[in-house]
């Protein structure tokens, strides 16, 4: 490692991020996935401007109809265009995935890193707090948060994130525990670097791999959680919809109107696949231990 640092001085060092970007570009699957995610984001954000329908525009006389030229993905029992609803639902689902995961990342990573790096009594205390929060029935915890936050669904996203960070904190802590025994951390001590600098510049980048993998796993979790909370009347309220809600409704009429389950499910799984491949690619790309080429 020290040799690598020495070499960098000579060949004009590139940053971790530039390296990562370089490596990511070489990973074809990750690039395709990233493009796919971009498409889905465009589909959800820009798509609704191009459909002829509104997400709550009903045509009860038409009712549930199979995919046709007028309604590419068919309509639901109230005659609403499924394509439009999947687009709008995507906004909610992607937003909840992004917000909640970001929140859980921020809290979990910082919490776990601090706990693991400082160690001793602080570590002990912080981890017991996590244990206590783990023991709280999860749903009740979210509902309590909702009582404080009201029924604003943007706040709900943060509330979900605020309860999803526990596992992240533990994973990061365990990584940090092993990292802090490494020589390069000893070196930072010798150099007299402040704690926050060590944690942010040296510890966390080295723990990025598992963090990213877990983050990509958190996204589907929070999307499905949002659907569940919406059913309880805490999340997005009808006629607004999300992928989770569309799928839940689709399951109920699976035998009668299979397209109502099929299309939202394909969209959701497609997104999750892409996210996972991209996460994989990012993990490889961001791993500072991978030798440069």
């Amino acid at each position: 490692m020290s040799e690598a640092i020495a070499l960098q001085e000579y060949e004009k060092g590139t940053s971790l991020w530039a390296d990562a970007w370089h490596r990511l570009q070489k990973n074809r699957l990750a690039v395709i996935s990233a493009a796919g995610i971009l498409c889905i984001v465009c589909f959800a954000v820009i798509g609704p401007w191009f459909t002829a329908y509104d997400y709550d525009q009903q045509d009860t006389a038409l009712g549930a109809s199979a995919p046709s030229a007028a309604h590419w993905l068919g309509t639901d029992p109230l005659g609403r265009d499924l394509l439009t609803r999947v687009m709008y639902g995507g906004r909610v689902s992607l937003l909840v995935g992004l917000c909640a995961t970001t929140v859980s990342l921020l809290i979990g990573v910082l919490y776990g890193a601090i706990s693991g790096f400082i160690g001793g009594r602080v570590d002990h205390f912080l981890m017991r707090v996590v244990d206590v929060l783990y023991a709280l029935p999860f749903t009740i915890f979210v509902i309590i948060l909702m009582v404080f936050f009201g029924r604003n669904f943007i706040l709900l996203f943060f509330a979900i994130g605020a309860v999803e960070w526990l596992t992240m904190a533990r994973i990061v802590r365990s990584q940090v525990l092993s990292l802090r025994e490494k020589e390069f951390v000893e070196a930072t001590t010798v150099l007299g670097l402040p704690h926050h600098h060590v944690i942010l510049r040296h510890i966390i980048p080295n723990a990025l791999g598992p963090i990213i993998v877990y983050a990509t796993l958190t996204i589907p979790q929070v999307m499905l959680l949002e659907a569940f909370l919406s059913f309880l009347g805490l999340g997005v309220q009808p006629p607004m919809s999300s992928w989770g809600i569309l799928i839940k409704e689709g399951v109920e009429t699976m035998e009668e109107y299979p397209w109502l389950l099929l299309f939202p499910s394909i969209t959701l799984t497609g997104t999750l696949f892409a996210l996972n491949f991209l996460g994989d690619g990012l993990r490889d790309a961001l791993d500072p231990r991978v030798s440069k080429d």
Binding site: D56, Q58, P239, E249, E252
Partner: peptide, 27 residues
């Protein structure tokens, strides 16, 4: 909390919003 009543609520919500210009939320 019932799927059937949700469907009806969405229907009347749509009617009231469309014809009266009211803002209707569901709970």
């Amino acid at each position: 909390s019932s799927e059937t009543d949700k469907i009806f609520a969405e229907t009347v919500q749509n009617m009231w919003q469309g014809s009266l210009g009211a803002t209707i939320t569901l709970r």
